[in-house]
C-alpha cells in the first residue's frame, strides 16, 4: 500500500511540475505548482516527516502561492507577447537537462557511485544530544529546541531582516506626499 501511494504521489508531483513549465497561462501554471507542492507534502507524510509536511502545505502551498497568484493577477502577467528562446539557448538547455538526467540515473542505479550510509531512525531526541550535535528528528519539538538554543541568534537576526524588508517596502512604495515630515511644496490654495 505505501508503495502504491508513493508512486501515486510521485507521479502527481512530477506530472504537475511538468505542466507548470508548459502551461501557457500563468495562473494555470501557479495552480499546477500548488498541486505539485501538495504532492510533495504527501511524500513527506509517507516519510513520517509530519512537521515538514504541515509546513509544506501551510507555507509553500498556502502563503507563497497566494503571493504568487496575487502578483500574477496584480501585474496582469501572461498577456504580453511570448518570447521564444533562440536556438542556442534551447540546445544548451536540452544538453544540460540530458546531462542532469543521466547523472541522476547513474547515481540511482550504480551502487558504487555515491557512498551512502543508512540514516539512523530517530523519532525522539536521543540521550546524547550535545552542543555541537543536535540531531534532526521528525518531531516538531526538536526544531523548537534547535531554534531556541543553538540557533537563537540567527533566529533573532532573521526577525530584524524581516523588519528591514518590511520598512524598505513601505519606504519605497508609499506616496511621497504623505511622507508627512515637512510641507515640501506649497499646496495650491483651494479656490
Amino acid at each position: 500500500m505505501p508503495d502504491f501511494l508513493f508512486y501515486l504521489f510521485s507521479a502527481l508531483t512530477v506530472l504537475s511540475a511538468f505542466l507548470v513549465t508548459v502551461s501557457r497561462n500563468a495562473v494555470n501554471g501557479a495552480m499546477y505548482m500548488i498541486v505539485s507542492f501538495v504532492g510533495m507534502a504527501a511524500l513527506f507524510v509517507l516519510l513520517e516527516a509530519y512537521f515538514l509536511a504541515a509546513l509544506q502545505v501551510l507555507v509553500y502551498a498556502g502563503a507563497v502561492m497566494v503571493l504568487f497568484l496575487f502578483i500574477i493577477m496584480l501585474l496582469d502577467a501572461g498577456k504580453g507577447r511570448t518570447v521564444r528562446p533562440d536556438r542556442l539557448t534551447t540546445a544548451a538547455a536540452c544538453i544540460g537537462g540530458l546531462l542532469l538526467i543521466s547523472g541522476l540515473i547513474y547515481i540511482t542505479f550504480d551502487s558504487g557511485a555515491a557512498p551512502s550510509t543508512p540514516l539512523p531512525v530517530i523519532t525522539e531526541l536521543p540521550e546524547n544530544a550535545t552542543a555541537t550535535n543536535i540531531p534532526f528528528t521528525t518531531s516538531s519539538r526538536s526544531f523548537g529546541y534547535g531554534l531556541f538554543t543553538k540557533y537563537m541568534l540567527p533566529f533573532q537576526v532573521t526577525g530584524f531582516l524581516l523588519l528591514i524588508a518590511m520598512i524598505g517596502v513601505i519606504v519605497l512604495s508609499k506616496r511621497i506626499d504623505s511622507s508627512g515630515d515637512e510641507p515640501a511644496k506649497p499646496r495650491i490654495a483651494k479656490s
Binding site: L153, P154, V157, I164, L172
Partner: peptide, 24 residues
C-alpha cells in the same frame, strides 16, 4: 555559515532599499 548568511542577507537587503532610496 548560518550566522554568516543570515547577517549578510540583512546587510544586503538593507542596501537594496538604501541604494534605491531616492526613488524618483
Amino acid at each position: 555559515f548560518v550566522m554568516l548568511f543570515v547577517s549578510l542577507e540583512t546587510v544586503t537587503i538593507g542596501f537594496y532599499v538604501l541604494v534605491s532610496y531616492c526613488r524618483y
